[in-house]
Design a protein around this nucleic acid. Structure first.
Lengths: 290, 290
DNA sequence: ATGAAAGCGCTAACAG
DNA sequence: CTGTTAGCGCTTTCAT
């Protein structure tokens, strides 16, 4: 039921309210690259969840630049009730400093004493390696992601351990930008390792690699198997359809908003939400040709 | 040079400033679907342009729901200095009403007396039809987009005229949701027209159609030629690479922000910026098999 | 219960 | 030119 005032078109001025209550009912969302297909589903889910709770979402893009990350947090700090920092590349020390200026929830990174939402990529990378080893591959390559990425470190750690446990070689390449172009550019380096199977930091890089492989006439999965991570919608549209580790990005967006908006007294500052991942086997992986 | 205060970490409170100046230095950006690959480059460009001018961007998603469009404009109205309405599905009358509550710039629609940024899809659709006719196709189909879309009306008008001028048949299908799923679902209807070439409302629909065609064993461009519109990055990643009409989405995002931020007295309320499109011929179009 | 008044942090107008 | 003051629209507190 609307009050008479509201039905007449009256809307309270949120800036004035913010001045007195100290709550802006705004949330900042900082991502590395809006145009990277990994983020839009996360942004969409976060925006929807926020709006449902009468919050509005500022979205900002760092262009993969760690310096810009800090500037954006600073710029938004006084204007929001909290910031969602997605896949940050900045140092933990800097995050520690920024959290004193504004409530922070970190996505895709575990930071001591800070609410965080992470995907269990560690388990996903393990499943990917085991899938490859099960196909008979013993020479593997890992196409590494960007410097400063917690996810990248997790993947490397877990993939290395899984390969070792299975008695397979793992050649680690990188760091690389998490883009299709970087994946394509790394094609020769991948081929040079002699690996018969590759796990890439994300689908975009895997897809770039697939393109470059196609240009060089290397058949996938005939001569080389390729696995991505993220399961962006693109992955089932390209040929061969990409085998990948799906990460629940929409759920992560919702969870991050929920954590931020939990009442401070009940907000466990050391809370860590871990979302499960799942290996999706499609057509870019096959048996070792040797 | 920073003032002493600023170097000490002081940031003025924008809510307080907004209260007195009446300018929030915020902009609202409303899109139908953040996860539709057409929008992220536009959002990214708009955010970047806005920030450069010391504005922050609220991003909101209507889920393709015209009712939600109005609600969002209302909700953001008092909190922003203007709203960028992208690809609105609402009626012109409603836009007329909303513009009295908050400065509006419309993208992908021409509205009398309102600043607008449009892509010249009319010219793009014409080029696409002429390309197809030049390839010997005389039976064409148009896979129509969503109801309420100005772009869809422009495409239909222009494609119809171009086909007529060239002496070709054009079978118009639709309306459809602008999604991959809808494109796939329309596959049988397209085939039933007997057309040897199709122009789709957007790349997403064209790609869905391509998928369904592949499932049915119809070869592209051997038996059927397909053209999309937008040139989303996906289009050159799928096989066959999609022939499409590229639309300058990033430029549109920047232009829309610029128009909104122009000083009111110099803002021509009837200004219309038309951005050029370009036909990109790739591998999904070929000669008429008959 | 209902109503008056103070004040959030800033800018703009005005006085010294 | 510098310093003081009023008041933006709201919520909260305090007095009636």
């Amino acid at each position: 039921m609307l009050s008479t005032a509201e039905s007449l078109g009256y809307r309270p001025n949120r800036a004035a309210r913010a001045l007195i209550t100290g709550r802006t009912h705004n949330i900042g969302l900082i991502v590395a690259d809006i145009a990277n297909p990994f983020f839009p589903p996360l942004i969409k889910a976060a925006e929807s969840q926020a709006r449902q709770r009468d919050y509005h979402l500022f979205v900002a893009d760092t262009n993969e630049d760690p310096v810009m990350e800090e500037q954006l947090v600073q710029a938004l700090a006084k204007q929001v009730d909290g910031v969602l920092l997605c896949s940050p590349r900045m140092s933990n020390d800097l995050i520690e400093k920024l959290r004193r200026e504004v409530p922070l929830v970190v996505v895709n990174r575990a930071v001591d004493g800070l609410p965080a939402v992470v995907m269990d990529v560690s388990n996903g990378a393990k499943a990917a390696i085991e899938h490859l080893v099960g196909l008979g591959h013993t020479d593997l390559a890992l196409l590494g992601g960007p410097r400063g990425s917690w996810t990248n470190r997790e993947i490397r750690r877990s993939a290395t351990a899984a390969a070792k446990a299975a008695g397979a070689n793992l050649n680690v390449l990188g760091p690389h930008q998490p883009t299709e172009a970087a994946g394509a550019a790394a094609c020769d380096a991948v081929l040079a390792t002699g690996a018969t199977a590759v796990l890439a930091y994300n689908d975009l890089m895997a897809i770039g690699l697939l393109e470059a492989l196609h240009d060089r006439g290397v058949s996938v999965p005939g001569e080389l198997s390729v696995v991505g991570i993220d399961d962006i919608s693109l992955s089932r549209l390209i040929r061969p359809k990409l085998t990948t580790v799906s990460t629940p990005t929409a759920a992560a967006g919702r969870a991050a908003v929920d954590m931020l908006l939990q009442h401070d007294d009940e907000r466990r500052t050391n809370a860590l939400v871990t979302l499960q991942t799942e290996l999706i086997v499609r057509d870019s992986t096959g048996p070792n040709p040797h």
